[in-house]
Amino acid sequence: MEDEARRRFLGVCLGGLGAAAAGGVLWPVYRYLTPRSGDEAGRTFSMAEQDLPEGAVKFFDFAGSAAVLVRKKGGELVALSAVCSHLGCIVQWDKARMSFVCPCHGGQFSTDGVVLAGPPPRALAKLPVSVAKGVITVG
């Protein structure tokens, strides 16, 4: 009986040591493989206000993903994620219709990002945008 208890105790100790060793190996490997947060270049984006006339759009990298800045008729500025809410393709600007079209499955979005047609389940995500001293800043 005493032998059995000792055996179980040693088994638990060995299991604990094994688990600690596995953790010691797996943690560095996990950290090595985890994407680095600092890698996502461009947490803010700036451009001169004069470079974006009415009816024009500007695509850019934002926090590791694609985004778009659009100046609507009347001068209002909107910044949107350019990632389609359906399956993650990048939307394209349809100048004739003044709307965004997803080339993958034909989803359509208004200049405010609202779904006009097609399969996308939600609007394009809006990004914070501000204008100061003639410079547009997103983020």
Binding site: P28, V29, R31, Y32, T34, R36
Partner: peptide, 9 residues
């Protein structure tokens, strides 16, 4: 220098 634990690997 930059990848976590890259030096170790």
């Amino acid at each position: 220098n930059q990848v976590p634990f890259g030096w170790l690997i």
